[in-house]
Amino acid sequence: MKVYSLLSLGEKHKENFSFKVLVHGENRNLSHATMNRPGLALTGNFQIFSNNRIQLFGKGETAFLYQEQHNPGLLVNCKKLMQEPVPCWIFTHGLFPPKAIIDLADEMKCPVFSSNLSTSLFAIRSNQILTDEFAPRGVVHGVLVDIFGVGILLTGKSGIGKSETALELIQRGHRLVADDAIEIKSIKGGNILLGAGIRKEVAHFMEIRGLGIINIPHLFGTGAVRESKVIQLIVYLEEWTDTTTFDRLGIERHYKQLLDVTVPFRKIPVRIGRNIAIIVEVAAMNARLDNMGYNATRDLDDTMKRYMEKNK
């Protein structure tokens, strides 16, 4: 399970949350992406209380806190609500709690924030951001390129020509996301696989055998690179031998699972004299046609069947 330091996360996404720090407190950790509305806990009901979640105070909860003078048990419940592992309290609508609560939070070292967003907007945004932060991640070996807007991960054995293929694609006007070590993340609840370089300092360098290390944006301009891209097709470059059989029609669809995300997969045989870059480029365009519902093999097949029917 991943754990984040709350302050580092808050700092990173400050703009999205339009945060104000009311009580700095201690630096607590966050281990869950979801949040809790503490209404029941405020009334003293701590059964099945999600104490490891962010505690979100909307208009209702805040109004309830202002009854603190008429409700002697409230401060006791609040104190319990501020104990670790509660990560923090967040008020929405730019609201802030009564002074007694601020003092209590100071004493308990519980971080308290206020956001100008409405409760629902805050919940939606933080949910999106936090699920992406907590998304499963991994590292794969390959080159990630953006070809006509299609994110293609080139894979294959070391020395098969992944980087050389990518270089030719860049030369043809496409974009490099990262070479070699690609960090993958399954975002948006596990439907989308996002790829980027594992370290952005290294992502836009490439190693070309015989040349050494080259810098892509310096050679081709900043338009030749991008930081991250959704992986929409995995291409596996495989050495062409006499015994291997390849899909000749291209009707069958193959998929590969990466971090439980299903991604279309295609094997491309490599042989001297085959221009792999052009084949990969066409694979990208074909993937787009496929998404639009067109399949050349099926089209040809239907046309020929009609022709044969007519000439019977």
Partner: peptide, 17 residues
């Protein structure tokens, strides 16, 4: 940590930092 890098790839090894 969580990263696994191919030892035969020079940029990967450099990216380990």
């Amino acid at each position: 940590d969580e990263d696994r890098i191919n030892a035969k790839s020079i940029l990967g090894v450099i990216a380990l930092g």
